[in-house]
Design a protein around this nucleic acid. Structure first.
Length: 126
DNA sequence: ATTATGACTCCCA
DNA sequence: GTGGGAGCCATAA
């Protein structure tokens, strides 16, 4: 199917993106931008460029990942599903993990996001 | 060589 | 809440 643009040193970056994705606990989600931010920026690439396109590359890496990578736990920064194909399947997989969608098809990243920041009320939901 | 297009995000009207 | 543009990358055609 349609391939997606890959970053320079794609082998290393993809492997890192996949590794990070594999760390997402069941029932939790993260965003393309956050994965990109946690990954090591390709050597020699303009930081601004990486900031601008890193998230897209993370998406590209997940577009063709190994079978053991939970790609469905990665959504866009708005908490919505971005996958062009298999969007329904992604939602079904997430709901099977008890991840809730609001009436606008969005996931509450404060609640299901990973890594998660401590809850303002002091209740660390991990 | 040039064009079109992305499983993105941020910012502003 | 919604919509559009910029960013200026890499790949396929």
């Amino acid at each position: 199917m349609a391939r997606y643009a890959h970053p320079p040193q794609r082998q290393a970056l993809e492997a890192e993106i996949w590794d990070l994705a594999r760390r997402i606990p069941r029932g939790r989600v993260t965003t393309y931008g956050r994965l990109a931010g946690l990954a090591t920026p390709p050597d020699g690439l303009d930081p601004a460029a990486y900031r601008a396109f890193g998230a897209r590359w993370a998406g590209g890496a997940l577009a063709h990942c190994p079978g053991d990578v939970p790609w469905w736990r990665v959504v866009n920064a708005q908490g919505r599903i971005s996958a062009r194909e298999g969007a329904e399947r992604q939602r079904r997989l997430l709901e099977a993990e008890d991840v809730a969608f609001d009436r606008h098809g969005r996931i509450d990243l404060d609640r299901y996001g990973w890594p998660l920041v401590a809850d303002p009320s002091g209740t660390d939901v991990r």
